[in-house]
Protein backbone atom coordinates (compact mmCIF):
# COMPACT_ATOMS: atom_id res chain seq x y z
CA UNK A 1 0.00 0.00 0.00
CA UNK A 2 2.51 2.60 -1.09
CA UNK A 3 1.48 6.18 -1.10
CA UNK A 4 -1.26 5.83 1.47
CA UNK A 5 0.91 6.56 4.52
CA UNK A 6 -0.10 10.19 4.79
CA UNK A 7 -3.76 9.34 4.32
CA UNK A 8 -3.72 6.65 6.98
CA UNK A 9 -1.67 8.68 9.44
CA UNK A 10 -3.95 11.69 9.06
CA UNK A 11 -7.02 9.51 9.63
CA UNK A 12 -5.54 7.87 12.70
CA UNK A 13 -4.32 11.21 14.02
CA UNK A 14 -7.67 12.98 13.71
CA UNK A 15 -9.62 9.97 14.95
CA UNK A 16 -7.50 9.58 18.05
CA UNK A 17 -7.54 13.32 18.65
CA UNK A 18 -11.34 13.51 18.66
CA UNK A 19 -11.47 10.55 21.03
CA UNK A 20 -9.08 12.35 23.38
CA UNK A 21 -11.09 15.57 23.20
CA UNK A 22 -14.18 13.63 24.21
CA UNK A 23 -12.38 12.40 27.33
CA UNK A 24 -13.09 15.13 29.82
CA UNK A 25 -12.44 15.17 33.52
CA UNK A 26 -15.54 16.53 35.15
CA UNK A 27 -17.44 16.04 38.38
CA UNK A 28 -18.14 12.42 37.55
CA UNK A 29 -14.43 11.72 37.64
CA UNK A 30 -15.08 9.03 35.12
CA UNK A 31 -13.19 7.50 33.37
CA UNK A 32 -10.49 7.50 35.98
CA UNK A 33 -7.37 9.52 35.46
CA UNK A 34 -4.71 8.52 34.46
CA UNK A 35 -5.25 4.84 33.77
CA UNK A 36 -8.78 5.06 32.42
CA UNK A 37 -7.44 7.68 30.04
CA UNK A 38 -4.71 5.42 28.76
CA UNK A 39 -7.21 2.61 28.20
CA UNK A 40 -9.63 4.76 26.24
CA UNK A 41 -7.02 6.67 24.26
CA UNK A 42 -5.50 3.37 23.16
CA UNK A 43 -8.87 1.92 22.19
CA UNK A 44 -9.66 5.16 20.36
CA UNK A 45 -6.37 4.82 18.51
CA UNK A 46 -7.22 1.27 17.45
CA UNK A 47 -10.69 2.34 16.34
CA UNK A 48 -9.23 5.22 14.34
CA UNK A 49 -6.68 2.89 12.75
CA UNK A 50 -9.47 0.56 11.66
CA UNK A 51 -11.46 3.43 10.20
CA UNK A 52 -8.44 4.85 8.40
CA UNK A 53 -7.58 1.55 6.74
CA UNK A 54 -10.89 1.06 4.95
CA UNK A 55 -10.32 3.40 2.02
CA UNK A 56 -6.71 2.32 1.30
CA UNK A 57 -7.83 -1.32 1.43
CA UNK A 58 -10.67 -0.62 -0.99
CA UNK A 59 -8.38 1.28 -3.33
CA UNK A 60 -6.03 -1.67 -3.38
CA UNK A 61 -9.05 -3.86 -4.12
CA UNK A 62 -8.14 -5.83 -1.04
CA UNK A 63 -11.70 -6.80 -0.20
CA UNK A 64 -10.68 -9.47 2.28
CA UNK A 65 -9.06 -6.78 4.39
CA UNK A 66 -12.28 -4.75 4.34
CA UNK A 67 -14.29 -7.74 5.55
CA UNK A 68 -11.86 -8.38 8.34
CA UNK A 69 -12.13 -4.72 9.36
CA UNK A 70 -15.86 -5.24 9.68
CA UNK A 71 -15.28 -8.16 11.99
CA UNK A 72 -12.74 -6.18 13.99
CA UNK A 73 -15.25 -3.41 14.55
CA UNK A 74 -17.40 -5.92 16.36
CA UNK A 75 -14.77 -6.06 19.07
CA UNK A 76 -15.73 -2.61 20.24
CA UNK A 77 -18.90 -3.99 21.68
CA UNK A 78 -16.70 -5.46 24.38
CA UNK A 79 -15.92 -1.93 25.55
CA UNK A 80 -19.50 -1.59 26.64
CA UNK A 81 -19.31 -4.89 28.50
CA UNK A 82 -16.04 -3.83 30.11
CA UNK A 83 -17.41 -0.51 31.36
CA UNK A 84 -20.63 -2.07 32.55
CA UNK A 85 -18.87 -4.81 34.48
CA UNK A 86 -16.47 -2.36 36.06
CA UNK A 87 -19.15 0.08 37.16
CA UNK A 88 -21.40 -2.70 38.43
CA UNK A 89 -18.53 -4.07 40.48
CA UNK A 90 -17.79 -0.77 42.18
CA UNK A 91 -21.47 0.03 42.67
CA UNK A 92 -21.32 -1.51 46.12
CA UNK A 93 -18.69 0.96 47.18
CA UNK A 94 -20.83 3.97 46.32
CA UNK A 95 -22.74 5.62 49.17
CA UNK A 96 -25.37 6.69 46.66
CA UNK A 97 -25.38 4.12 43.85
CA UNK A 98 -25.58 5.17 40.22
CA UNK A 99 -28.22 2.56 39.43
CA UNK A 100 -28.09 0.11 36.54
CA UNK A 101 -29.74 2.45 34.07
CA UNK A 102 -27.07 5.11 34.56
CA UNK A 103 -24.33 2.49 34.26
CA UNK A 104 -25.80 1.17 31.05
CA UNK A 105 -25.96 4.71 29.72
CA UNK A 106 -22.32 5.43 30.54
CA UNK A 107 -21.22 2.12 28.99
CA UNK A 108 -23.11 2.90 25.81
CA UNK A 109 -21.55 6.34 25.55
CA UNK A 110 -18.08 4.82 25.75
CA UNK A 111 -18.84 2.36 23.01
CA UNK A 112 -20.33 5.05 20.81
CA UNK A 113 -17.32 7.31 21.20
CA UNK A 114 -15.05 4.66 19.74
CA UNK A 115 -17.26 4.55 16.69
CA UNK A 116 -16.94 8.32 16.62
CA UNK A 117 -13.17 7.91 16.35
CA UNK A 118 -13.64 5.27 13.66
CA UNK A 119 -16.05 7.33 11.55
CA UNK A 120 -13.90 10.43 11.86
CA UNK A 121 -10.85 8.51 10.63
CA UNK A 122 -12.87 7.00 7.78
CA UNK A 123 -14.28 10.33 6.59
CA UNK A 124 -10.84 11.93 6.92
CA UNK A 125 -9.34 9.40 4.54
CA UNK A 126 -12.17 9.96 2.06
CA UNK A 127 -11.54 13.70 2.25
CA UNK A 128 -7.86 13.06 1.75
CA UNK A 129 -8.52 10.86 -1.26
CA UNK A 130 -10.51 13.51 -3.07
CA UNK A 131 -8.94 16.77 -1.90
CA UNK A 132 -5.62 15.80 -0.43
CA UNK A 133 -4.29 16.98 2.95
CA UNK A 134 -6.44 20.07 3.40
CA UNK A 135 -9.56 18.19 2.28
CA UNK A 136 -8.84 15.42 4.77
CA UNK A 137 -8.40 17.87 7.62
CA UNK A 138 -11.56 19.77 6.78
CA UNK A 139 -13.68 16.65 6.23
CA UNK A 140 -12.42 15.04 9.45
CA UNK A 141 -12.87 18.23 11.44
CA UNK A 142 -16.39 18.79 10.14
CA UNK A 143 -17.61 15.25 10.76
CA UNK A 144 -16.03 15.23 14.23
CA UNK A 145 -17.71 18.52 15.08
CA UNK A 146 -21.03 17.34 13.65
CA UNK A 147 -20.98 14.00 15.51
CA UNK A 148 -19.92 15.76 18.69
CA UNK A 149 -22.98 18.03 18.42
CA UNK A 150 -25.30 15.12 17.63
CA UNK A 151 -24.05 13.06 20.55
CA UNK A 152 -24.75 15.75 23.17
CA UNK A 153 -27.20 14.34 25.68
CA UNK A 154 -30.19 16.27 26.90
CA UNK A 155 -30.15 17.22 30.55
CA UNK A 156 -32.89 17.34 33.15
CA UNK A 157 -32.82 21.14 32.88
CA UNK A 158 -34.02 20.85 29.27
CA UNK A 159 -37.19 18.97 30.10
CA UNK A 160 -38.10 20.18 33.58
CA UNK A 161 -38.27 23.20 35.85
CA UNK A 162 -36.47 22.85 39.14
CA UNK A 163 -37.34 24.50 42.41
CA UNK A 164 -36.01 24.14 45.93
CA UNK A 165 -38.56 23.85 48.73
CA UNK A 166 -38.52 23.40 52.47
CA UNK A 167 -39.38 20.00 53.86
CA UNK A 168 -42.71 19.39 55.54
CA UNK A 169 -43.09 17.22 58.63
CA UNK A 170 -46.44 15.57 59.14
CA UNK A 171 -47.99 12.69 61.06
CA UNK A 172 -48.86 12.32 64.75
CA UNK A 173 -45.24 12.66 65.82
CA UNK A 174 -44.04 14.78 62.91
CA UNK A 175 -41.93 11.97 61.64
CA UNK A 176 -43.23 11.85 58.07
CA UNK A 177 -40.94 13.87 55.84
CA UNK A 178 -42.49 15.17 52.66
CA UNK A 179 -42.54 17.85 50.02
CA UNK A 180 -45.75 19.53 48.80
CA UNK A 181 -47.95 17.08 50.69
CA UNK A 182 -46.26 13.99 49.31
CA UNK A 183 -44.86 11.92 52.15
CA UNK A 184 -41.57 10.38 51.18
CA UNK A 185 -39.90 9.04 54.26
CA UNK A 186 -40.73 8.13 57.82
CA UNK A 187 -37.94 8.69 60.29
CA UNK A 188 -38.22 7.15 63.73
CA UNK A 189 -35.18 8.65 65.42
CA UNK A 190 -35.43 12.11 66.95
CA UNK A 191 -31.78 12.69 66.26
CA UNK A 192 -32.25 11.99 62.55
CA UNK A 193 -35.44 14.04 62.44
CA UNK A 194 -33.64 17.07 63.90
CA UNK A 195 -30.92 16.75 61.30
CA UNK A 196 -33.50 16.64 58.51
CA UNK A 197 -35.23 19.71 59.97
CA UNK A 198 -31.96 21.59 60.30
CA UNK A 199 -30.23 20.88 57.01
CA UNK A 200 -32.52 18.82 54.80
CA UNK A 201 -33.85 20.34 51.60
CA UNK A 202 -36.61 19.37 49.21
CA UNK A 203 -36.26 19.64 45.45
CA UNK A 204 -39.21 19.84 43.09
CA UNK A 205 -38.60 18.70 39.52
CA UNK A 206 -41.56 19.72 37.44
CA UNK A 207 -41.76 18.12 33.97
CA UNK A 208 -42.47 20.53 31.12
CA UNK A 209 -44.70 18.13 29.16
CA UNK A 210 -46.04 14.58 29.16
CA UNK A 211 -42.92 13.21 27.48
CA UNK A 212 -40.82 14.66 30.25
CA UNK A 213 -43.25 13.30 32.83
CA UNK A 214 -42.89 9.76 31.53
CA UNK A 215 -39.12 10.11 31.34
CA UNK A 216 -38.75 11.42 34.86
CA UNK A 217 -40.97 8.68 36.21
CA UNK A 218 -38.33 6.13 35.24
CA UNK A 219 -36.69 4.75 38.37
CA UNK A 220 -33.27 4.65 36.75
CA UNK A 221 -33.54 8.29 35.73
CA UNK A 222 -34.49 9.33 39.23
CA UNK A 223 -31.62 7.36 40.73
CA UNK A 224 -29.26 9.08 38.27
CA UNK A 225 -30.47 12.48 39.48
CA UNK A 226 -30.03 11.48 43.12
CA UNK A 227 -26.55 10.15 42.40
CA UNK A 228 -25.47 13.26 40.54
CA UNK A 229 -26.78 15.68 43.15
CA UNK A 230 -25.15 13.70 45.96
CA UNK A 231 -21.99 13.58 43.90
CA UNK A 232 -21.79 17.33 43.33
CA UNK A 233 -23.08 18.76 46.58
CA UNK A 234 -21.98 16.00 48.91
CA UNK A 235 -24.30 14.04 51.13
CA UNK A 236 -24.27 13.37 54.84
CA UNK A 237 -24.27 9.61 54.78
CA UNK A 238 -22.22 6.67 55.96
CA UNK A 239 -22.42 2.93 56.40
CA UNK A 240 -24.95 2.09 59.09
CA UNK A 241 -26.50 5.57 58.94
CA UNK A 242 -29.38 4.97 56.58
CA UNK A 243 -31.65 7.68 58.00
CA UNK A 244 -30.15 10.32 55.73
CA UNK A 245 -30.48 8.40 52.48
CA UNK A 246 -31.56 10.80 49.73
CA UNK A 247 -34.76 9.80 47.93
CA UNK A 248 -36.63 10.79 44.80
CA UNK A 249 -40.32 10.04 44.67
CA UNK A 250 -43.17 10.81 42.34
CA UNK A 251 -46.32 12.80 42.82
CA UNK A 252 -48.74 10.48 41.07
CA UNK A 253 -51.24 13.23 40.37
CA UNK A 254 -48.97 15.80 38.78
CA UNK A 255 -45.98 13.73 37.67
CA UNK A 256 -43.62 16.00 39.59
CA UNK A 257 -40.57 14.36 41.04
CA UNK A 258 -39.74 15.30 44.60
CA UNK A 259 -36.35 14.73 46.04
CA UNK A 260 -35.12 15.00 49.60
CA UNK A 261 -31.49 15.16 50.55
CA UNK A 262 -29.17 16.46 53.26
CA UNK A 263 -26.41 18.02 51.20
CA UNK A 264 -23.10 19.07 52.65
CA UNK A 265 -23.41 22.31 50.66
CA UNK A 266 -27.07 23.41 50.85
CA UNK A 267 -26.72 26.28 48.39
CA UNK A 268 -30.01 26.71 46.53
CA UNK A 269 -28.61 27.82 43.18
CA UNK A 270 -26.03 25.04 43.18
CA UNK A 271 -28.68 22.45 43.96
CA UNK A 272 -30.71 23.60 40.97
CA UNK A 273 -27.63 23.55 38.80
CA UNK A 274 -26.71 20.05 39.92
CA UNK A 275 -30.16 18.67 39.17
CA UNK A 276 -30.50 20.40 35.82
CA UNK A 277 -27.11 19.21 34.59
CA UNK A 278 -27.95 15.54 35.14
CA UNK A 279 -28.06 13.81 31.76
CA UNK A 280 -31.29 12.30 30.50
CA UNK A 281 -30.60 8.60 30.14
CA UNK A 282 -31.22 7.23 26.68
CA UNK A 283 -32.83 4.16 28.21
CA UNK A 284 -35.19 6.22 30.35
CA UNK A 285 -36.38 8.51 27.60
CA UNK A 286 -40.03 8.09 26.72
CA UNK A 287 -42.04 9.85 24.07
CA UNK A 288 -45.70 9.00 24.60
CA UNK A 289 -46.72 12.17 22.73
CA UNK A 290 -45.22 10.75 19.53
CA UNK A 291 -47.81 8.00 19.50
CA UNK A 292 -51.39 8.35 18.38
CA UNK A 293 -52.89 7.01 21.57
CA UNK A 294 -50.50 8.99 23.77
CA UNK A 295 -51.03 12.35 22.09
CA UNK A 296 -54.78 11.89 21.85
CA UNK A 297 -55.05 10.94 25.50
CA UNK A 298 -52.84 13.82 26.60
CA UNK A 299 -55.36 16.62 26.00
Amino acid sequence: MDGYEQMILLGIGLGTLIRMIELKVDYRQYPGYPHGYVVHTTLGFIAAALGALVIPALLEENYVAVTILGAAAQQFQSIRTMERDFLTEIEETELVPRGIAYIENIAKVFEARNYLAMITAFITTIGYYFFNLIGGLIAGGLIAYFLDRVMVQDTVGNIANIRVKDLEFSGPTGSNIGVEDVVMMNVGLNEALEEWEKSGIGIVIEPKDDDARATLANIGQRQAIVHDVANQLGVKLDIGVVDYTPLARLNLDTGRVYMIIIPIEPDEECVKEAVSSTPILEEARRRPLESKAGSAAAD
Partner: peptide, 25 residues
Protein backbone atom coordinates in the same frame (compact mmCIF):
# COMPACT_ATOMS: atom_id res chain seq x y z
CA UNK B 1 -36.43 3.85 73.47
CA UNK B 2 -34.55 6.34 71.32
CA UNK B 3 -31.21 4.95 72.43
CA UNK B 4 -32.08 1.29 71.78
CA UNK B 5 -33.59 2.13 68.42
CA UNK B 6 -30.59 4.21 67.40
CA UNK B 7 -28.08 1.58 68.47
CA UNK B 8 -29.96 -1.27 66.85
CA UNK B 9 -30.30 0.68 63.62
CA UNK B 10 -26.60 1.47 63.44
CA UNK B 11 -25.57 -2.08 64.23
CA UNK B 12 -27.98 -3.90 61.97
CA UNK B 13 -27.83 -1.37 59.12
CA UNK B 14 -31.54 -0.76 59.36
CA UNK B 15 -33.81 2.24 59.32
CA UNK B 16 -36.01 3.20 62.26
CA UNK B 17 -39.61 4.05 61.44
CA UNK B 18 -42.09 5.60 63.81
CA UNK B 19 -45.60 4.23 63.47
CA UNK B 20 -46.92 7.19 65.42
CA UNK B 21 -48.43 5.11 68.23
CA UNK B 22 -45.27 4.62 70.22
CA UNK B 23 -44.10 1.63 68.19
CA UNK B 24 -40.77 1.86 66.37
CA UNK B 25 -39.90 -0.70 63.76
Amino acid sequence: LEYIAMLMARITDTMVHDLGNGVRI
